[in-house]
Write a protein that binds this DNA or RNA. Structure first.
Lengths: 117, 117
DNA sequence: CTGAATCCTAAAAGATACTG
DNA sequence: CAGTATCTTTTAGGATTCAG
């Protein structure tokens, strides 16, 4: 493993954040990790506020990074299912920690605000 | 701790990513964590490519979240030092993991590309 | 049902010049 | 030295319409 130094960390952290950051990607990844395989319309229902365009775009990007898998069934009407890959599962722990830190940070900020009032 | 569900994770993850994401913030945080207190010009030297405007803006945002501390010395020429706070230190483990995942992901993608050629 | 295509707005980032 | 102030570019995200 590389030494933890600011200038080489830029590579790893930048790569990771570029892949998981954004308004929808973390939700999509968690959804597939926790609820299992979902089809396009399921995802759209699960994620309030997302547009078809954004959902399509984010799914495509996640698929290109091999974090999720896309399966098309030759039916009418068409059915497309998305599922997490093994590689995608390696992100679960990180997403969990990001969430926990975010919650604790919100609490921290609230308490600090109370202390000062 | 909150249950890990997609819709409430949106809050925690969103908060955390909003704070640490971006092109420069992770580097600044790691720099202060690993190298200790730095003054403005030191940070600018450490981080190739950053402009004064961006550095100033990112430092201000990190300070507002109480992740870093700003200390002004009444000297001529002026001296301003930045250091990580205790609260900021709680991010070190996450940044480390983001970096490791990013590196491994790059390797993963490279190996996959070789396999297919 | 699952998308692609087009147009649009807002936010992030960068270039450059100026200041106490 | 440590910033501000403006302006321009780039990127993320959204609204809407059309299509297999």
């Amino acid at each position: 493993m590389e030494k933890l130094e600011p200038h080489n960390c830029k590579i790893g952290i930048g790569e990771c954040l570029h892949i998981i950051a954004g308004k929808w990607k973390p939700i999509i990844l968690l959804l597939l990790q926790l609820e299992g395989t979902q089809r396009f319309s399921d995802l759209k229902r699960w994620i309030p506020g997302i547009t078809q365009k954004m959902l399509t775009a984010q799914l495509k990007e996640l698929e290109q990074e091999d974090l999720i898998q896309r399966t098309v069934y030759a039916e009418v009407p068409p059915r497309v299912e998305y599922s997490i890959t093994e590689h995608g599962r390696t992100l679960e722990h990180i997403l969990r920690q990001l969430n926990e830190w975010g919650i604790q940070h919100i609490n921290y900020v609230n308490e600090k605000r109370v202390d000062q009032s």
